[in-house]
Simulated scan of single mutants.
Amino acid sequence: MDWNRIEGNWEQMKGKIKEQWGKLTDDDLDVIAGKRDQLEGKIQERYGIERDRARQDVDDWSGRH
């Protein structure tokens, strides 16, 4: 799924994102509000991984949805 569709359906996608990245809080998801770069940054912060790894994880996830 392209990111524009994810961003447009953010409220519906939040549950799927929490399934994948359980360390993200509802407040995190509200702040992210569908912005991919902010999602990658929060994943990086919460999981202590490099930005490139977070970007790849988001690519993999979005490709499945």
Rank of each mutant, 00 (worst) to 15 (best):
Glu50Ala: 13
Lys14Tyr: 01
Gln12Lys: 13
Glu11Pro: 07
Asn9Phe: 08
Glu40Gln: 15
Asp28Gln: 02
Asp2Trp: 04
Lys18Ile: 09
Asp37Pro: 03
Gln56Tyr: 09
Asp37Asn: 06
Arg51Tyr: 10
Asp57Met: 14
Ile17Leu: 08
Arg55Ser: 14
Gln20Gly: 08
Asp26Glu: 15
Glu19Val: 11
Arg36Tyr: 03
Asp52Met: 13
Gln56Phe: 11
Arg64Met: 02
Asn4Phe: 12
Gly63Cys: 07
Gly22Arg: 04
Lys42Phe: 15
Ile43Glu: 05
Glu11His: 08
Lys14Gly: 00
Trp10Ser: 04
Ile32Met: 01
Glu19Met: 14
Lys16Asp: 15
Lys16Ile: 11
Trp10Lys: 05
Trp21Pro: 13
Arg55Ala: 15
Gln56Arg: 01
Ile6Gln: 01
Asp28Thr: 02
Gln44Lys: 15
Arg5Ser: 14
Gly22Thr: 07
Lys18Leu: 11
Gln44Gly: 04
Glu7Trp: 03
Leu24Val: 05
Gly34Val: 01
Asp57Ile: 15
Asp28Pro: 07
Ser62Leu: 13
Trp61Lys: 07
Asn4Tyr: 09
Ile32Ser: 01
Asp52Ser: 12
Ile17Asn: 06
Tyr47Gln: 05
Met1Ser: 11
Gly22Cys: 03
Asp57Trp: 15
Tyr47Glu: 14
Asp28Val: 01
Asp59Met: 12
Leu39Ala: 05
Asp30His: 03
Gly41Cys: 00
Met1His: 10
Met13His: 09
Val58Trp: 06
Met1Asn: 05
Trp10Glu: 05
Met1Cys: 02
Ile32Asp: 00
Glu40Trp: 09
Trp3Gly: 02
Glu45Ser: 12
Ile32Gly: 01
Ala54Ile: 07
Ile43Tyr: 08
Ile32Ala: 03
Ile6Asp: 05
Asn9Tyr: 08
Leu39Arg: 01
Gly8Pro: 09
Trp3Ser: 02
Gln38Asn: 07
Tyr47Asn: 07
